[in-house]
Design a protein around this nucleic acid. Sequence first.
DNA 1: TCTACTTCCACCTTTGAATTGG
DNA 2: ACCAATTCAAAGGTGGAAGTAG
Length: 418
Amino acid sequence: MQTLRDLKHNFSIPPPATMAGAPDPYHQGNIRMTLEDQELWKSFHEIGTEMIITKPGRRMFPHCKINISGLVPYAKYILLVDMVPEDGFRYKWNKDKWELAGKAEPQPPYRTYLHPDSPAPGSHWMKQPVSFLKLKLTNNALDQHGHIILHSMHRYHPRFHIVQADDLYSVRWSVFQTFTFPETSFTAVTAYQNTKITKLKIDNNPFAKGFRDEGTNSKRAALKESGEVKEERFSPWGGVSDRESSHVLGQDSPVGSEARDVYSSEQLVPGHSSYQPYRYPPSTCHAGSGTGSRVPDIATVPEHEGKAAAHEPGPTHCPPNLASTPQDYPGVLNMAVGQAKPAVLSHHPLYAPYGPEQALGQWGGASSAQYPPAPPTHHHHHHHHLATDYSTQAVHHGYHHGNVSDWSQYPLFSYSCW
DNA sequence: TCTACTTCCACCTTTGAATTGG
DNA sequence: ACCAATTCAAAGGTGGAAGTAG
């Protein structure tokens, strides 16, 4: 795969050491984010985390939970999560390890999960760990529930974005700070491939208690693991016996070390992805009722049930659609991403999700949202246009303790729509 | 045939409303 | 009247097995 070469290029950009130097005016520097349950994540990561994706949507396990600090207590923020491809390949599980199985499929509709508490003051987010327990992954490209759509047998990692914004409509003009944690990367699957992963899930997920062996086992008795694989601990990823995957970054690589490098880079610099501002389809542009008009419709139908309600009017009522949906969808923004190569995602639109009315369908046509040709985005352009490059991250790969978080900041929707 | 995906199921946790106790 | 603890039933999350699709 020559693609690797390409990838390399993209990734080879050295992480600008802290580029924090160029903080945006808007952003108040020092925001920090750490991953909770790191040990658990690591134990999965060492083996090669797999996340089940189903048509109706499946939760993640471990689920994403983070600690945030450095926010302005009284300022309001919106917290988002999206999943970015780890690379441009498709994989297959052969016997006891992952192997490359061709090029990645084109990106499905790109969606972003909005934390149901958004928007909320910094004090709220910092008060206790923020969990994304209800985020669900699906393989149904036509999903109407606002779940994050992924391709099975492809690798991804979650990205956490924090944006200072009073309401969803102002998100576009705000600066995003993005964090990623190498140990949270995973392979989306429709059924578990690595039995060790299955076992770890069963042993740690309370909902799977019924499958545990312990004394009282009623279900699946012996799994007989006749010796399966010996040392796999560190190497489900193919050839390379890189046991070092343990290092945070490494893990991913599928095949050879070559690939590995790529990954590493990526992790370090998560994204060179540049976000591009996206324009909404005209029609929707002004959808927003009151607020800014342009706004994306963010669909947030927060699950009401939860807690949300309290502050703020439902996220501003968004466009009709939101309101219309009765369900408790977690709020989600859909964004389309440019497809692309692994690392380069390009931009996205956000719009809203699912409402019956607007649901994807609406855009469907118009938008190219779905599989936009990846614009040749260059990374670096901060200025106007979309800019964004991620810069930096300090991820220190912290091995253990550290949490690796990288942060990058970039202005996201710099422009408004058209 | 093989691999990926879907559906259904037993088993369990979670949720939340109703009830009880102080 | 008020609030915390308890109870209980309904809702819903698990992975496995078996079936389907290609």
